[in-house]
């Protein structure tokens, strides 16, 4: 079994997640995972690419979505450098889907913010949704990794509410 998230903890209290020197407040209970984003023809993710936090949100029915401001500030990628694949409506707001690869950063067992081994590439047929900065559109506080990413890649997700741990693996 190909472990991606190994007993990754989540908290029932508010907290912070540190991303590139910024402390981002996190509500109680969201499952924070770390991802990297790359242009679509990336063969191997360069070591210099930073992982950024995202919420594993099984209530979200898309694969991956991110605010344009976060994309630029945290990954250095510009939306206009990622080919548009089509439009979509999220909560009745019209956005574009862009071609990009999302990589899930593997955690050290039981630790949320410590990584190990090479990230796992998620193959998302519809690309990623980007909330544009130039329109008054409500965007999520953190990027969202939705159920479709798990489903489409045939991943197995276990959420253990007894010890607040999440595991994710590929077969």
């Amino acid at each position: 079994m190909n472990k991606i998230l190994d007993q990754l903890p989540y908290s029932n209290e508010r907290g912070l997640v540190l991303v590139q020197g910024q402390s981002i407040p996190v509500m109680a209970h969201p499952i924070i995972v770390w991802v990297a984003i790359s242009v679509k023809d990336t063969i191997r993710l360069p070591e210099s690419v930073s992982c950024i936090p995202a919420i594993l949100d099984t209530g979200n029915t898309f694969g991956f979505s991110i605010a344009e401001s976060q994309l630029i500030e945290w990954t250095g990628l510009r939306a206009d450098s990622l080919e548009v694949l089509g439009p979509m409506l999220i909560n009745r707001q019209e956005l574009n889907r862009h071609a990009a690869d999302v990589w899930l950063c593997r955690n050290q067992r039981g630790k949320r913010d410590v990584f190990q081994d090479e990230p796992f590439r998620l193959e998302l047929r519809d690309g990623i949704a980007i909330y544009p900065s130039d329109r008054p559109i409500a965007s999520p506080r953190l990027p969202l990794l939705g159920l479709r990413a798990i489903d489409e890649n045939g991943l197995r997700c276990t959420i253990n509410g007894k010890n607040r741990r999440v595991s994710l693996s590929a077969s």
Binding site: I55, T61, F62, S69, I90, R141
Partner: peptide, 16 residues
């Protein structure tokens, strides 16, 4: 074509 997606996220301010 545009598919419609539900996302019950918190519409809070983006922190960045």
């Amino acid at each position: 074509e545009a598919e419609e997606i539900d996302s019950p996220f918190d519409h809070g301010e983006v922190s960045v």
